[in-house]
Design a protein around this nucleic acid. Structure first.
Length: 822
RNA sequence: GGGCCGGUCGUCCAGCCUGGUUAGGACGCCGCCUUUACGAGGCGGAGGUCGCAGGUUCAAGUCCUGCCCGGCCCA
């Protein structure tokens, strides 16, 4: 036995004060709010910017868009990174857990327009901005309340808003630095365009949807007769610049090099060989227009074809569309199809299931147009992105592929500029005379060129400048967080907090958040933005379908808080499914968490009562004490490994199952009689209980911080928080394999006999006049637990024999039989 | 069409990477027990040929191949 002698109490200092006993009744909801307040007052969640001893763990908390609704999906995310933050604090890290709000964006503009009954163009940009800023504060307040009610261990001294001048300064500065590095440029390129929002949008902002559409077969005239093409968008005929056929397609390849005449509009276009044309699709010949779809973009670039502008920013057809000019695309197409039918130029019409790109904000069908926009170079960084994605850690591992697939599938650089108001302005003016760009200088930031004019002289001698009226994609605000959280560019030691240790993200926004962060920081610092990515899945309704109000499976977060507070649903979030997978919200899981809290509370209350006179002393642990300690060590090991891997489910399950079904169900029952007694057997049980329970509270602390704290401060240490106490260490000295083997046998015997008592309709407490156990070769083992068996089962006379016999056998130990007289 | 994930008791979820005792847990269902931590509890029971078909192996829920179904993302 590794442990000997009274007084040599490992991990337990002799206590002077008696232990406080927990009250029978407890209002968990009030308790939680109490601790949230105390933690804030004590500042225990603050990052220590000056501490150079502890290793840093920095969390790249994604600043949410303050919609005002902290939904159960948010609940899941914040629980994930809060568990991570708390676990890391307990394992010795200086944890930076910041919180920001990603304020800019169209939804606020729309909401303000509606609320004030104005259009954004009715008032100057700075006035409209102010309205948006005021508007969004109410939503930030709501979101913040929810984050705090969850018990997220945020360092609120770090709180920031992306709409603040100070934040915009940093974003604009990064813009200038990227421009200096030639990573940002202004150019004319085909881009996705939302005709309703009248703004450029990035690939990542395009949603795809299947729609039933029509495909029309239309004849083009060539020197050797008609060639039929199939198109879903005949309205693009005026912008047709070529006819493409596959070079191996024997129906058409003799036409290559010749000309074709566009029906109805009459322009002549070249017939070119394009191996990307699918001879199986439609008629096998494809018209190339500017731009009907992405394939057109690729073809135009590849064959150096001219570009014909067909629509303006509102999606209205231009002059080139002839009599259709001035109509919307949809109306124009309708009219054109009608006219072409009459002219017998439509040979066939068929239904086709096609995919259309939609603006993710307003669901308007996007168009592809060519326009002068700001871009950030991303395509040239693709290899570097792939390399970095492979080098960092992903929880779970298979999510890595999502980023790689996205990055390698991109066709264009990132379109940065947007034509909106409530966003970070592009810090640039243009010389009114020669057109040269005059970028803001770092000390002029932050600046809104739409509001502030520039006092300077251009190289050409002119002093007149016009502002760049573009603003930036909101992702440009939020994809700098790893550096900005770390303190860039002002804190001299910002690189101590950089790269971020973990970037938490939803699987749905890997293509945006994770990708933009990575590419942006690589471009600026040539370094990864984060060392690991923690992915959470979506929260589904209890029926396994996507949670939504229209499906009637929607659960609001305030409702959950009101009924069950934070710690119970936090257990659902932690244990509802594997990290990264979608998890259904189930009230049953939350209720189970709530019952676990009550169970642990009662067990701790019992421990407190039996430890009231405990002075921290040590007596040689008995078999069953060593058994539970061994089981505890193995639980610590399992939970720690799971926590290290962000496997919150198995970490939580390991701790909960041990506490409830091993410690409460078996150990407390077996040790109860000793704890009511006197002397060394009692002290051994007390030592085990005192030290064991403390570790159990710690194992649960990241998941149920409020509950653990309430019990810990009442029973163990009123002045120090368990949430920053040391995480239990697996202690090999406390592992006793032999005790575990024999203990399992004793517990199995007790369980079997207890079941038998139950079967005979008597309570566990009813006395057993005589119990005879026929233990064969295990008689010596059973003998070691004789007292536990007698105590737990209330046996008056216990006889342990070798050999076999008895009226029943012990489950899982069929060679051990027993007889019992009640 | 491509990539990724999933298909395990009525329901939800582990287990699969690193093959090996009667496949676990929760919810629900049924039965029993007022026992000085807990009846918002305890004890027990029923319920699964691990999507299908092959293959590797002494041994497959676990590894390999093909297929089917569902989900997400992309074209």
């Amino acid at each position: 036995m590794p442990l000997h002698g009274k007084g040599s109490a490992p991990n337990a200092n002799r206590r002077k004060n008696t232990m406080n006993v927990l009250p029978r009744k407890i209002n968990f909801l009030e308790t939680e709010e109490k601790w949230q307040q105390i933690w804030e007052e004590e500042g225990i969640n603050r990052y220590d910017w000056d501490d150079e001893t502890r290793p840093v763990y920095s969390i790249d908390t994604p600043p949410p868009y303050p919609s005002g609704d902290f939904h159960m999906g948010n609940f899941l995310n914040w629980t994930y990174f809060d568990i991570r933050a708390r676990y890391k604090r307990m394992t010795g890290y200086n944890v930076l857990f910041p919180q920001g709000w990603d304020c800019h964006g169209l939804p606020t503009e729309v909401a303000v327009e509606k609320a004030k009954g104005i259009k954004k163009s009715d008032v100057p940009p700075d006035i409209f901005r102010k309205m948006c800023e005021e508007w969004i504060e109410q939503y930030i307040a709501k979101m913040k309340t929810a984050v705090m009610r969850l018990g997220a261990s945020i360092d609120w001294t770090t709180e920031y808003r992306t709409m603040e001048p100070e934040y915009m300064r940093k974003i604009q500065l990064s813009f200038l630095k990227l421009y200096e590095k030639d990573m940002i440029y202004k150019g004319e390129h085909p881009i996705n365009w939302c005709p309703r929002c009248e703004t450029a949008i990035a690939d990542a902002e395009v949603e795809h949807e299947h729609k039933q559409g029509k495909i029309y077969t239309i004849p083009f005239m060539t020197d050797s007769g008609e060639v039929l093409i199939a198109t879903t968008r005949p309205i693009y005929l005026p912008a047709c610049v070529a006819l493409g056929v596959h070079p191996d397609d024997e129906r058409y390849n003799q036409l290559i090099g010749g000309k074709a005449t566009v029906p109805y509009f009459g322009q002549k276009v070249p017939i070119i060989a394009n191996d990307e044309v699918d001879p199986e699709f439609g008629t096998g010949a494809m018209m190339i227009c500017t731009y009907g779809d992405k394939a057109d973009v690729v073809a135009v670039a590849r064959f150096n074809l001219p570009v014909i502008k067909l629509i303006d920013g509102k999606g209205t057809l231009l002059e080139v569309a002839g009599k259709y000019a001035g109509m919307s695309i949809a109306d124009g197409q309708k009219q054109l199809v009608k006219d072409m039918r009459e002219a017998d130029l439509i040979k066939e019409e068929k239904q086709l299931d096609q995919e259309v790109g939609l603006c993710w904000r307003c669901s308007t069908a996007i168009e592809i147009v060519t326009a002068l926009q700001w871009f950030m170079r991303t395509i040239s960084l693709t290899d570097k992105v792939v390399e970095t994605a492979n080098a960092i850690t992903w929880y779970p591992d298979w999510m890595r592929q999502r980023l790689i697939d996205w990055a390698t599938g991109l066709d264009w650089d990132w379109v940065l500029s947007r034509q909106r108001v409530f966003a970070t302005p592009v810090p640039a003016w243009y010389c009114n005379n020669c057109g040269k760009i005059r970028l803001a200088k770092p000390d002029e930031l932050p600046v809104d060129p739409r509001v502030t004019s520039i006092n300077d002289t251009c190289e050409c001698g002119s002093t007149e400048f016009v502002p760049d009226t573009d603003v930036m994609d909101t992702w440009f605000d939020s994809s700098m967080t790893c550096a900005i959280h770390a303190g860039w560019p002002d804190k001299p030691n910002w690189e101590r907090q950089f790269p971020a240790s973990v970037h938490p993200s939803g699987q749905d926004i890997i293509r945006t958040w994770a990708y933009y962060l990575m590419v942006r920081h690589l471009a600026l610092f040539d370094e990864t933005a984060y060392d690991s990515v923690l992915i959470n899945g979506m929260v589904l309704g209890g029926d396994g379908r996507k949670m939504s109000k229209s499906l009637g499976n929607f659960v609001s977060t305030p409702e959950v808080f009101e009924k069950f507070g934070a710690d119970a649903p936090r257990q659902w979030a932690a244990a509802g499914g594997s990290t990264g997978t979608d998890i259904p919200f189930r009230w049953e899981d939350v209720e189970y968490g709530w019952r676990f809290m009550r169970k642990l509370w009662n067990a701790a209350r019992f421990a407190g009562m039996r430890l009231e006179d405990y002075d921290g002393g040590y007596a040689e642990p008995q078999l069953i004490d060593r058994w539970i300690m061994t089981k505890l060590q193995k639980t610590i090991k399992r939970a720690t490994e799971a926590m290290e891997n962000c496997d919150f489910m198995n970490a939580t399950e390991a701790a909960r199952n041990f506490i409830w079904h091993v410690f409460c169900d078996h150990y407390l029952e077996a040790a109860k009689t000793r704890l009511y007694g006197e002397g060394d057997p009692k002290e051994a049980a007390q030592w085990t209980l005192y030290n064991g329970l403390r570790d159990m509270l710690k194992l649960m602390a990241p998941v149920t911080p409020h509950l653990s704290e309430e019990i810990y401060r009442t029973m163990y240490d009123p002045n120090n928080s368990i949430t920053v106490a040391e995480w239990p260490k697996y202690d090999e000295k406390l592992v006793d394999e032999e005790a575990e083997r024999i203990g399992d046998m004793i517990i199995a015997a007790i369980s079997s006999i207890r079941t038998e008592k139950n079967r005979r309709g008597v309570s566990l407490n009813a006395p057993v006049v005589k119990l005879t156990i026929y233990a064969g070769e295990n008689a010596g083992d059973i003998e070691q637990g004789a007292q536990d068996i007698k105590d737990t089962l209330k046996v008056e006379e216990l006889e342990i024999l070798g050999g076999s016999g008895g009226e029943a056998v012990i489950e899982e130990y069929e060679h051990i039989g027993y007889s019992m007289n009640l």
